[in-house]
Amino acid sequence: MSGIGRVLVAVYGVLALAAIGRSFVQIASKFDEAPLAYALSALAALVYVVATVALIRPGRAWYRVAWATIAFEFTGVVVIGALSVAFPALFPHDTVWSWFGRGYLFIPLVLPVLGMWWLARHRPAVEGDAS
């Protein structure tokens, strides 16, 4: 991992930390209020962590994991974001993806796009290549 990709990973790491922190607080203090939303928060946090690790690790397997997790995030932020705008009643409690990640400066919406762009540009070459 080198170049500007490191910055991408750093921002992913910060977002993963933010998602873990929020999810931890929600589950520890008020899980009963909205089990579905908070379970979703925890899942999202976990996926951010896996995506961060997958971006750092070399090799084809991690490359696929990175694609899967980042695609999952993008789907999540678009679907949950759209639902939270169209049917606010469904999401009375904030998640990291509500309103397309407004509570996080829209970073959850922008980051997967940058991530997928970066992955597309940095396809691992044939086996044995140590990039």
């Binding site: 080198s2 500007i4 490191r6 750093a10 921002v11 910060v14």
Partner: peptide
Amino acid sequence: AAFWALLERNRWATVILGVA
């Protein structure tokens, strides 16, 4: 951020310090 910046000292390490 500082730990990672010192592992590989380049311009992006400085940007990462700023992001943190």
